[in-house]
Design a protein around this nucleic acid. Structure first.
Lengths: 114, 114
DNA sequence: ACAACATATCAGCGAGGAGTGATATGGCGC
DNA sequence: GCGCCATATCACTCCTCGCTGATATGTTGT
């Protein structure tokens, strides 16, 4: 029983961590940020993010598989969009938290510098 | 000027990514989750998270440097606590988003399996 | 059917970072 | 002061993941 509780708890934590990892990359954040404004096709995302096309496609596949974005075929384009407004909420919450901790986060050298 | 804008934009993205990375680890989430309920000393965190003591200390150093937790000396203990309620908000928003995308996130195999 | 464009896939490389074990520092009571 | 407990630090290894370059799939117009 305690074991069951532990399993549930760690399963929750693992899910959270996995979702956070989805956001924990500048390239994916750039893509998600661009899609928060308007749906975009891959080549448009490539232009705006200045990432390589295979790179964008790879991230989109991941985001799509995770359900963070959705896609619609439009002629020979494939238009991607944010799947849920909760994503926008989450991003603005992060910005709100950054208002408080930005200095410390930048100073923290446990992660690679930008 | 456009360069300046780009710099600002990418700086924002980098900060977001860095903050997300702070949350993108099961061990740190376990620590933060435990601290959301009540302030705890290191050895208490070790007990509850079942992580090694050096491991917990390392994560705490990072979280402290980032300003996500704060610490108070209490005798020979050092008690850690969540630095801002915004962190709790962020965590609950993630859970809300997981309500929608949990299935996809679990299915996504671009990241290591839990 | 073919050419041109849009997107996806794959193998391989390289770097970042999480965990461990050993060890150092620091405060407490006897 | 000395042992004991609580915490921090360091060097090291391993694994994960992001990026690139080449290539495959797919769609549209002519």
């Amino acid at each position: 029983m305690a074991q069951l509780v532990d399993d549930r708890k760690s399963a929750t934590i693992e899910r959270r961590a996995k979702l956070f990892r989805g956001f924990a990359d500048p390239s994916r954040l750039a893509i998600l940020g661009a899609l928060c404004n308007e749906p975009l096709a891959v080549h448009e995302l490539v232009e705006r993010t200045e990432l390589s096309q295979p790179n964008v496609s790879n991230h989109l596949r991941c985001l799509l598989e995770c359900g963070l974005v959705a896609s619609d075929r439009d002629g020979r384009f494939i238009r991607y969009r944010i799947s849920s407004p909760r994503i926008t909420v989450l991003l603005s919450d992060v910005d709100a938290l950054l208002d408080v901790v930005a200095v410390g986060v930048e100073a923290c050298d446990n992660y690679r510098e930008a």
